[in-house]
Design a protein around this nucleic acid. Structure first.
Lengths: 106, 106
DNA sequence: ATCTATCATCGCAAATAAACGATAATCTTT
DNA sequence: AAAGATTATCGTTTATTTGCGATGATAGAT
């Protein structure tokens, strides 16, 4: 994109929420999170079996979720166990809940 | 992207939520929605004054929000009044609430 | 009929995202 | 030391997003 001359200054909450939302902006990532929430945890390979996607693609989606802070990864060689990042999960839940509640008052 | 041979089949709720989330995936769109939720409605020009973005850019963000179903637009020549799409707003609120609640049970 | 105001759309450029196969990294087991 | 299993990362391709200025569309006002 053609960058703007002056960066816009956003609140911490807005940036945080946009980050979470962006990670949730792909159906496969929502499905991964749903699966994780049910199983509590799983390995990368489990997801590769479930979704008709290349292993590298699944890994990349996991990276997105990880960098957004929605999941944790624990190395258990040679595998990696991914779980919901509960603290940030609650943070996200609260951010979205507060956000969507705003209109209700009016 | 290099397209997959077979499309993945997602549930309606997942697709709907991903669509909403994608629209919320940019800080400026979150700010616009916050503003709309406070004001209940506003014109495009109001937003152009608030945000240091070109008019065409603001218009494009509004289009995104509109196509995601989060806002309504009512033509009041020569202006357009945008408001929260209350029905879909509630739909989104419920989708995100249900989604984030899943982990709480475990 | 022309002018003005407001907004959308077009066309462009740069950046990011999404998918893949191939390769590298890591730790266990042999 | 070598082999296996699992996953991350790299490099590439195509698609989408983000931003801008310029142009087009629409309806009220002159």
């Amino acid at each position: 994109m053609k960058r703007s001359p002056h960066e816009i200054k956003y609140s911490e909450g807005t940036l945080r929420m946009a980050r979470f939302a962006k990670a949730l902006g792909h159906p496969v990532r929502i499905e991964i999170l749903k699966f994780l929430a049910e199983q509590s945890c799983c390995f990368t390979g489990d997801l590769v079996e479930i979704f008709p996607l290349a292993q590298s693609t699944v890994s990349q989606h996991l990276k997105e979720l990880y960098e957004a802070g929605l999941i944790r990864g624990k190395i258990e060689p040679p595998r990696v166990r991914y779980c919901i990042h509960e603290e940030n999960w609650k943070k996200a839940r609260d951010l979205f809940a507060d956000f969507f509640q705003k209109q209700e008052l009016g």
